Simulated scan of single mutants.
Amino acid sequence: MILEIEKVKNVWHEVKDILSVPHNEKQYKKLLKVLDELIDEVGNNEKHPLAPLLETVGNLIEEYENDHFIQPNSEPLDVLKFLMKENQFTQKDLAELGSQGVVSEILNGKRELNVRQIKALALKFSVSPSVFI
């Protein structure tokens, strides 16, 4: 096992940008370009020597996207929590939804958003109201 780590250590500085989890948009976009190049090279050939690299880069990109982008068909509550996290909002920052008790019930899944609340959230987060439906 030590031998494999030594081999990786010797080339890590050359490959770390394409084998590391992206932590910002610049790194993410760089990985997208690498993925495009790999797709051009590998295509659908699962036996291509770079096929495992294509899969790895795809997984790294997917990980970033799951953490940083709203996923289609997400539950409205998941979308709201994601947007709160991205904007560093707390329950107190959602006063337009109603009292703190109402906000708490929404965030705990005990109450669904109504039309007025959906419109307010869409405006607050600059997103389509459809993400909360």
Results as ranks from 00 to 15, higher is better:
residue 2 I to C: 04
residue 2 I to V: 12
residue 3 L to Q: 12
residue 4 E to W: 13
residue 4 E to S: 13
residue 6 E to H: 15
residue 7 K to M: 02
residue 7 K to P: 07
residue 8 V to F: 15
residue 9 K to G: 06
residue 9 K to M: 10
residue 10 N to T: 13
residue 11 V to A: 09
residue 12 W to Y: 14
residue 12 W to C: 01
residue 13 H to I: 03
residue 13 H to W: 11
residue 14 E to K: 15
residue 14 E to F: 13
residue 15 V to I: 15
residue 16 K to M: 11
residue 18 I to L: 04
residue 19 L to I: 02
residue 19 L to R: 13
residue 21 V to G: 02
residue 21 V to I: 10
residue 22 P to T: 11
residue 23 H to V: 11
residue 24 N to I: 12
residue 24 N to F: 00
residue 30 K to M: 02
residue 31 L to Q: 07
residue 32 L to F: 08
residue 33 K to L: 00
residue 33 K to A: 04
residue 34 V to K: 06
residue 34 V to L: 02
residue 36 D to F: 11
residue 36 D to G: 08
residue 36 D to T: 05
residue 36 D to H: 10
residue 38 L to D: 04
residue 42 V to G: 12
residue 43 G to H: 11
residue 43 G to I: 05
residue 46 E to L: 06
residue 47 K to Q: 09
residue 48 H to M: 13
residue 51 A to P: 01
residue 51 A to K: 04
residue 52 P to H: 05
residue 53 L to W: 07
residue 53 L to V: 07
residue 55 E to I: 06
residue 55 E to T: 09
residue 58 G to K: 08
residue 61 I to S: 05
residue 61 I to P: 05
residue 62 E to W: 14
residue 63 E to F: 14
residue 64 Y to W: 12
residue 64 Y to V: 06
residue 64 Y to I: 04
residue 66 N to W: 06
residue 67 D to S: 13
residue 67 D to E: 10
residue 67 D to V: 07
residue 68 H to N: 15
residue 68 H to P: 10
residue 68 H to Y: 10
residue 69 F to Y: 15
residue 69 F to K: 15
residue 70 I to L: 12
residue 70 I to P: 05
residue 70 I to K: 09
residue 70 I to M: 07
residue 70 I to V: 12
residue 71 Q to T: 08
residue 71 Q to H: 13
residue 71 Q to L: 14
residue 71 Q to A: 08
residue 74 S to C: 12
residue 76 P to A: 03
residue 77 L to R: 15
residue 77 L to C: 07
residue 79 V to D: 02
residue 79 V to A: 14
residue 79 V to E: 03
residue 80 L to A: 12
residue 83 L to T: 08
residue 83 L to D: 07
residue 84 M to R: 00
residue 84 M to S: 00
residue 85 K to Y: 08
residue 86 E to C: 09
residue 86 E to P: 01
residue 86 E to K: 15
residue 87 N to Y: 00
residue 87 N to I: 02
residue 89 F to Q: 01
residue 90 T to Y: 14
residue 90 T to H: 09
residue 90 T to P: 02
residue 91 Q to V: 04
residue 93 D to E: 08
residue 94 L to C: 02
residue 94 L to Y: 03
residue 97 L to N: 05
residue 98 G to V: 03
residue 99 S to P: 00
residue 100 Q to P: 01
residue 100 Q to V: 00
residue 101 G to F: 10
residue 102 V to F: 03
residue 102 V to P: 00
residue 103 V to E: 14
residue 110 K to G: 02
residue 111 R to C: 02
residue 111 R to K: 07
residue 112 E to Y: 03
residue 114 N to D: 04
residue 115 V to L: 13
residue 115 V to Y: 12
residue 116 R to S: 05
residue 116 R to A: 06
residue 118 I to M: 11
residue 118 I to Y: 02
residue 119 K to W: 00
residue 120 A to F: 02
residue 120 A to I: 01
residue 120 A to S: 11
residue 121 L to Q: 04
residue 122 A to Y: 01
residue 122 A to L: 05
residue 123 L to Y: 04
residue 123 L to S: 06
residue 124 K to P: 00
residue 125 F to Y: 09
residue 126 S to I: 01
residue 127 V to L: 14
residue 128 S to G: 13
residue 128 S to E: 12
residue 130 S to V: 01
residue 130 S to E: 15
residue 131 V to D: 00
residue 131 V to T: 02
residue 131 V to E: 03
residue 131 V to Y: 09
residue 133 I to C: 10
